[in-house]
Nucleic acid binder design. Sequence first.
DNA 1: CTGAAAGCGCTAACAC
DNA 2: GTGTTAGCGCTTTCAG
Lengths: 345, 345
Amino acid sequence: MRRGRPATAGDVAAAAGVSLATVDRVLNGRPGVRSATAEAVREAVERLGFRRDVAAASLARGRRYRFRFLVPRLPQNSFMQAVRREIDAAALGGLDHRTAIAVDDYAAFDPADLARRLDACRRGEAMGVAVVAVDAPEVRAAVARLADEGVAVVTMVSDASPSRRTCFIGPDNVAAGRVAATLLGRFGGGRRGRILTVAGRMTLRDHAERRLGFAQVVERDFPHLSLLPVAEGLDDWSVTGPMVAEALRAAPDLVGIYSMGAGNRGIVAALVAAGRGADVVAIGHELTPFMREALLSGTFDACINQDPGDEVRRAVQTLRALADGDRDFRPDPVRIDIYVKDNLP
Amino acid sequence: MRRGRPATAGDVAAAAGVSLATVDRVLNGRPGVRSATAEAVREAVERLGFRRDVAAASLARGRRYRFRFLVPRLPQNSFMQAVRREIDAAALGGLDHRTAIAVDDYAAFDPADLARRLDACRRGEAMGVAVVAVDAPEVRAAVARLADEGVAVVTMVSDASPSRRTCFIGPDNVAAGRVAATLLGRFGGGRRGRILTVAGRMTLRDHAERRLGFAQVVERDFPHLSLLPVAEGLDDWSVTGPMVAEALRAAPDLVGIYSMGAGNRGIVAALVAAGRGADVVAIGHELTPFMREALLSGTFDACINQDPGDEVRRAVQTLRALADGDRDFRPDPVRIDIYVKDNLP
DNA sequence: CTGAAAGCGCTAACAC
DNA sequence: GTGTTAGCGCTTTCAG
């Protein structure tokens, strides 16, 4: 029976005394097979240890995937640029796997523009959409319209919730905030003082969640530390810089900074200018080229990262599963990576 | 020309005015094509934006891969068990991708047994071998014999070097040691005192490298800390336990423990018994179920991890590339993951 | 409910 | 050097 090589669907058909077409129907759970026949096929599959050759299946199916990614237009934000690069890479690689990926960007922080572009996906050209979202009613409504038309939507990096997106592909940001607090508290070495937390905007769900987790842990584990009110730096170094400089002046007992968004260039500049680069503990997010330098120079002490390549790949994988009608596919969770100067990749 | 759907090799052939076979020869860099013809084909490929459909190629090629994994028999070692589980998972998944993976184990730490089993791979049944190695002359010789027969060998987790293995798939253990030192030093909060480092055996290359990186950073960055001689716990909790208990007694100023191998159960037991679970900083390796608990309970403060699933997948990928004759394929480096209680997956 | 047969896009013999 | 052709293993009409 098995002559060295693995069993094929043909072998199964022969063993079960049915035709190839029937085997295929059973394999793919299609209707129109008597249960006795189906059982015989399943038995043969089991007995021969048959496994479907995915290359052959994919070729025969001839199915084509068309997805669209939507990201905010933030040319200054290296992390978002990295996300774009990873999407481009996935687009290139996808071509070999019958998957066409288009990218589009929207005016950053602008729910109306994002909603408009989501609506543009409704003409049926895309089977699925992955979006770095803004958490706003217009966006949630546009997502619902897509869902109604059978276009699967997943959110990445920043979620819109509750909404009809199938899932969010990104780190647990509350946990990320907790990690930041643990590292900052412990790196501080028991010194008493205040901590500055810098967000882009607290209306960004990911930043708000990070702050939440951070505050939880500081309160519980580091009672000798207290939090200053959140500074909103708009993810812009020309805003964060003066803000941090001012905080350094106003709070001489500042022992740490937690930067929950972008604009770290300004934070480093302010710390260095004040001669506090070494003694203030700084924790930030996303391992951009600038963050690498800041870690190596010691101005930043740790960086919490989400791997954009990973996220994009998971998004594509999820969208493909959804397009295949696999309603209950759940992607692996995105990890919370910790980097210090010694484990930079 | 392009009617919506992506160009096929047939389209390219038509566009270049040659046959399918010629296109195939150019695509795969096979000889027997006039350079002018080849150029015309390449031009058509470019112009049509042709990309080879990997599913079709893989199906037509009909190539079958047979690999073998060799791991030490260490039923007590959860990390090695995880490696085995990941290999089993890869073996199952590989079946769908024309890849047969066999696993075998050898007597742990026994170069002679490992060499024997490597030699057993020489009968041509395996096209490639991935081995969690022991760094010994017998092993290096056996690897050379395999290489002579054209069987590709990659090492995983623990290297044998210099040897004719094609590459090592594992973390940079010197860097991992440096990370451990940075974390331990900073978590210690400037307290002066001694540090115990526990290895399985210093003849294990990974443990020795970790210790090297650790010592480098302690010396350079934390002059208030000094290292006790390495304790060799044989990766066995019944050995590490008493060792740590004794160190705790002999060195009342012990501020930290760096566990470079397994046997963490013994370390935790000794710390807890001495009532030092909270104040001694403990850093270990590999996120086993026990390590998770130890992090959550606070006895261990951080864990440096290598992802066994990642390593196994990279090994398979590398072996496949090697089997396809891709001499200069280099797998992505294995990351050094840092876990604290807050970012456990 | 089941089967026969025509591909999917590429590769590899084998002709010319 | 180049072209013809028979598959690879599965999916999918379309008949029965």
